[in-house]
Design a protein around this nucleic acid. Sequence first.
DNA 1: AGCAATTATATGTCACTACATCTAATTTTA
DNA 2: TAAAATTAGATGTAGTGACATATAATTGCT
Lengths: 150, 150
Amino acid sequence: MEIEKEIKQNLKFSSEYQKVAVNILYTASWLSTHHANALKPFGLTPQQFNLLRILRGQHPQPATINLLIDRMIDKSSNASRLVDRLLEKEFVSRCVSEADKRAVNVTITERGLNVLTQIDKKSESLELPLRNISEEEAIQLNQLLDKLRG
Amino acid sequence: MEIEKEIKQNLKFSSEYQKVAVNILYTASWLSTHHANALKPFGLTPQQFNLLRILRGQHPQPATINLLIDRMIDKSSNASRLVDRLLEKEFVSRCVSEADKRAVNVTITERGLNVLTQIDKKSESLELPLRNISEEEAIQLNQLLDKLRG
DNA sequence: AGCAATTATATGTCACTACATCTAATTTTA
DNA sequence: TAAAATTAGATGTAGTGACATATAATTGCT
């Protein structure tokens, strides 16, 4: 549906650029709602899931908090506290680095790997809402977003 | 920059669709950071600004909380509490509706209109980060996002 | 009229973003 | 090598999103 109708904007957008801004924010909100709902049965928030995937990418190597921040989608999310929550669920382990006692090494646990495997099996449900566009269009959309950010 | 490089993804995306998802979320985060920074000098958050613009669209008519929720970008944001904050800053006034004592009428104040006028004058700074794409591309991007949401 | 259902909004809680500040460890530099 | 600067991370706070529940007013039903 056109973005004007979704937010029942009675005043026209002053420019196509302003519309792009609202459209991206609105679509991101729509997407992360879908995302959050799909992950809820697994006891993970989208941010926790993102962090866990980064840790799987490193496995069996650990990651420091700084490495996690570097690779997260939302940079200024609070990696320390996200790790806290994953620790409570025993999806990760954490220990002070021997080489640099300021740093901590975070590693995904077997349990963490298992939950990701389960989610992988249901990954269509994460991508399903995106199938309204063709792969060709997806490529085009990615190019435009990359270009937008400069 | 390509999204893979921004989040230093060492593992390739499993599909162009997964990349679309990450790209939209990342771009929205990038955009709302710019947005928040541009609004900070005026003492407004993006959500408060969005709400205030809706109220300007209604002015001099008031809006109920329900009308605000209906038109907000983030639907389940908490309109009541956003209004609380705008009230503290005296950008809006609030009073119980005579016709329906459950409802409240929220109206933008002169002060609220003034701050929006000031922001309008600096609106290039809100749109500046978007000028990396042409108007043609902006139209295309809007069409793709609208189509994506089905 | 009288009671149930609905509606408009408020409030409480948890997780998260953004940002400032703090501590401790390491590196730099004089 | 000792002080200064930097770095890694933890912690505190305000604002917000998502969601559940509460309250009060209104509407619908009989």
